[in-house]
Amino acid sequence: MQRSRSKYFERNGKSYLLVELDQQPNLDHIETVSGSRDQLYLDWELADTRKARPQQRRLFFALLNDIADYFVVPQDFLKAMFYGQYREYTNGNEISLSDTTESSVSDANVLLDLVIDFMFTWRVPFKRGYEQLPREERYYMYQCCRHRVCCVCGKRAEIHHVTGSTIGIGGDRTKVDHTERYVMPLCHIHHMEVESIHEEAFGEKYHIPVTGIRLDEETLRKIGVRGNYRGETNGKPVNK
């Protein structure tokens, strides 16, 4: 992760974000990824430079306890492991969650994201589900989709299209652009239940958001949702 400073401005009716990098980017890597050294696409996030919050520290250690209980390993070992992952991810930056920390809210969220991603990858159960997470419910739902985990019970998930985004009986899902539809990750049992009692009752029963989220094409492909993306069907170009 490379740090930068940015300036927003408008000119001739268009909006621009000027980015000043702290270090020279690897142009060979940029060309390999984007096919050009002159133009590339960036994901960016507004940094919260406030001092890391005590609740972030409490969440970090609560999640470590979940992992320690699941794998029966010492919490100190896990703390050192994730601090090491943070250094590697941020190109050598250190982090602290102590009362005297100089780390920011955004820094702590990066660390928490590493822990949360580990828990989804290794199917470590969350003790209180999305209520524990440092971000909103949609982030939890996204991670559940990304790892094909049921947002209710943690079992292997199917992709449920919420009301208004359903495909219909007999519809061919491979001919649908799923980026335009709202989805939820549910195991087979909960998938059948939500379709029988409908989303509102389902959400009240399990205390989860049921509006669903939209996934980008890359995520949908990674989790194996076949559809018609950019003129493709079943992942293959359509003959024209």
Rank of each mutant, 00 (worst) to 15 (best):
L17E: 12
Y86V: 02
D69S: 12
A47R: 14
S4D: 05
K236W: 11
V176I: 13
N26L: 13
Y139A: 08
R11S: 06
H178E: 09
P209M: 13
L27Q: 14
T101Y: 01
G231W: 09
Q56M: 06
D22F: 14
E31S: 14
H178P: 10
G231I: 10
E218F: 12
K155Q: 08
C150W: 02
S104K: 03
S96H: 02
V105N: 03
I197K: 07
R146W: 04
V238Q: 11
M1D: 07
E218H: 13
F61W: 14
H188R: 10
M192G: 08
A47L: 15
Q56C: 01
V73K: 08
F118E: 09
T163G: 07
N26A: 14
T100D: 09
R214H: 11
L114G: 06
C150V: 02
L27M: 15
K240V: 13
T121G: 06
D48K: 03
L112S: 00
G203S: 10
Q132T: 03
P237W: 02
A80P: 03
T49V: 15
Q143R: 09
V183Y: 01
V194Q: 06
Q23K: 14
A62M: 13
L186K: 04
N239L: 12
I116K: 00
M119D: 00
N234A: 13
V124M: 00
D38W: 14
Q56I: 04
T32Y: 15
P185Q: 01
H190G: 03
R221F: 06
V210L: 10
A157N: 02
R128Y: 10
A157E: 02
R87S: 10
H198T: 14
Y41P: 15
A157M: 09
Q23R: 14
L97I: 01
T166A: 10
D99S: 13
M119S: 00
T100P: 04
P74N: 05
Q23A: 14
Q56T: 01
H29L: 15
Y140H: 10
P125C: 00
K155L: 09
G171I: 06
E31F: 15
R173N: 04
F120T: 07
V72W: 04
R181H: 07
I189M: 05
M119K: 03
D69R: 13
N93M: 11
G92Q: 05
I189T: 11
T179H: 03
P209E: 13
E180I: 08
D76E: 12
G154R: 01
T90Y: 03
S15L: 06
N12Q: 12
K155F: 11
R123S: 08
M119F: 00
V149T: 11
I116P: 00
D22L: 11
Y83L: 07
E217F: 08
I116Q: 00
L21R: 13
S6H: 09
V225D: 02
A62W: 09
G231H: 09
H198P: 07
D107E: 09
Y142R: 09
T100L: 06
K222C: 10
